[in-house]
Design a protein around this nucleic acid. Structure first.
Length: 502
RNA sequence: GGGCGCGUAGCUCAGGGGUAGAGCAUCUGCCUUUUAAGCAGAGGGUCGGUGGUUCGAGCCCACCCGCGCUCACCA
């Protein structure tokens, strides 16, 4: 038993090893192979009938323990919730001696009949018990009480955020609301996938290791392939490969997968994050706006069965059509200038008036983007599409069919946050080459996030890509919005952390 | 990267130069319908680390490490 676990023994762990040894010596297998159940905590409570004495077999983790000599009460927790069990030495004999050696955290299976205690709690009167897994570390267990108003009060809740993120398995055991968020996340992704499938689009997979990165403005992670003796980048977006597939003739493709961006981390940024990108041929961004409305509506209905949400104290309604505003018009109204005809100097003045630090904002596009995010974005609480972005911010989007200086692009905003980005995809290879070249110039001027020229992508466009509508949705942020979480770390099981130091 | 804050028992936290504390958890004894079970007793700490000031440092100072919040960049 001298392994790693015992190196950091403290008294509590040592005690558990002693119990383990004692259990083994008494013939109890502390780590069982299987246990067949026929019910669960929720089912038992929901379907309780007085005087029925229904016999059930359940399994779960001991979360509370009240021993009273030759009888004990405990709560066990399974996937559905918690239920109280009642054990007496008279009923289970030798197993009761094993039970004396159990701790909070141990996983057991029990068989018994359902009854209601004197104080009215539906419980299982155990007739046989089997230890399924002995815990060697103490759980940071909280206790719950209910005050006179009926509110649940949790005492000594496991609250250290660092520990909760690093040891998510413990967080999930002791903080049940955490599990609910992740179940919702899973259902949101399923609902989205089902919707996209039902619309006839094909889920595909494209490379994560890319010789060139593109499709977004971001700094990449680099890695290295030994046999090819080549540096690769972890993708920052799926876009350029998915559009190659549209060239190839698919009738709509989508990918739900991780992207990686080598940038700062905060409440809304994790270095790896999940993105859904969709490309549909023969459609444009107008069509895509309607599609997004339909898809989000569908997810809300299917996962939550509601359209009204509260986010960070704000009430949000996902109606069937979202407000649409022009970025340029909105800015004209807010700051009184036409950002398209304004020069860099005027834009800098406007930015400074708004209290923006203009350091590093040298181009019109970046200035406009920043002014927008300060002057307009926070007010976009109800679902809103902001349309028509400056060309230089959008090197992969088609120029607007009637309006000069802007592209056919929209971003969806909810609760002041961006949740999606879409455009009529640029399918003119000559225009695309010019845009890449303009990006190359920005790169030479020191913009590390500007696109590189992707010759293979240009070659693909030269073979002809149908007019196409493209969409990207940050899944983590969508989940945050729908589950009322203000930190991305609370919707990612294992958020990025500095490596643990011993 | 900048600013602010935090780090004391397994968990949640008090203590701010003079013997290291509480509740829960743990251990021993009693207890066969309890539920933050109860009663009686006990154990448990390199007070994040390293240096310094001091007769004496969880406490004051410096540096370091880790975390949280926030600002900047990005989705």
């Amino acid at each position: 038993m001298d392994n790693n676990v015992q190196q950091d023994v403290n008294v509590l762990i040592k005690r558990r090893f002693e119990e383990l040894t004692e259990l083994k010596s008494k013939g109890f297998e502390p780590f069982a192979y299987s246990y067949d159940i026929d019910s669960n905590s929720e089912d038992i409570i929901k379907n309780f009938k007085e005087d029925e004495k229904r016999v059930v077999k359940i399994a779960g983790r001991i979360m509370a323990l009240r021993r009273m000599g030759k009888a004990s009460f405990a709560h066990i927790q399974d996937h559905e919730g918690r239920i109280q069990i009642y054990l007496r030495k008279d009923d289970i004999g030798d197993s009761y001696d094993a039970f004396r050696l159990l701790d909070i955290g141990d996983i057991i299976g029990v068989e018994g009949f359902v009854f209601k205690t004197k104080t009215g709690e539906i419980s299982v009167h155990v007739t046989s018990m089997k230890l399924l897994s002995k815990t060697l570390r103490p759980l940071p267990i909280a206790k719950e009480t209910v005050d006179e108003a009926g509110n649940k009060i949790i005492h000594d809740q496991f609250a250290d955020k660092e520990l909760r993120y690093r040891q998510r398995y413990v967080d999930l055991v002791v903080n049940p609301e955490v599990r609910d968020v992740f179940i919702k996340r899973s259902k949101i992704v399923s609902a989205m996938r089902n919707f996209l499938d039902s619309e006839g689009y094909l889920e595909v997979e494209t490379p994560i290791l890319q010789p060139l990165y593109g499709g977004a403005a971001a700094r990449p992670f680099t890695t290295y392939h030994n046999t090819l003796d080549t540096t690769f980048y972890l993708r920052i977006a799926d876009e350029l490969y998915l559009k190659r597939l549209i060239v190839g003739g698919f009738n709509g493709v989508y990918e739900i997968s991780k992207d990686f961006r080598n940038e700062g981390m905060d409440k809304t940024h994790n270095p790896e994050f999940t993105m859904m990108e969709l490309y549909v041929p023969y459609k444009d961004y107008e069509w895509m706006m309607t599609f997004v409305e339909k898809m989000i509506h569908n997810i809300c209905k299917n996962v939550f069965n509601k359209l009204e949400f509260e986010y960070d104290g704000k009430n949000i309604t996902f109606g069937s059509s979202w407000k649409r505003v022009s970025m340029i018009d909105e800015l004209k109204e807010k700051i009184g200038i036409d950002v398209l005809s304004a020069d860099v100097k005027q834009l800098k003045e406007s930015a400074m008036k708004l209290g923006i630090d203009i350091k590093g904002l040298e181009t019109k596009g970046k200035l406009i983007d920043e002014i927008f995010s300060v002057a307009v974005q926070p007010e976009l609480i109800q679902p809103t599409f902001v349309i028509d972005y400056p060309v230089e911010l959008s090197p992969l989007a088609k120029k607007h069919r009637t309006r000069n200086g802007v592209v056919e692009r929209f971003e969806g905003y909810v609760a002041g946050r961006e949740i999606c980005n879409a455009f009529s995809e640029l399918n003119d290879p000559i225009d695309q080459r010019e845009r890449f070249e303009a990006q190359g110039k920005m790169r030479e001027e020191g913009d590390q996030e500007a696109h590189q020229i992707d010759e293979d992508f240009l070659r693909a466009l030269e073979y002809g890509m149908p007019p196409t509508a493209g969409l990207g949705i940050g899944i983590d942020r969508l989940v945050m919005l729908l589950t009322n979480q203000t930190s991305i770390r609370d919707v990612i099981f294992f958020p990025q952390m500095k490596p643990e130091v011993k």
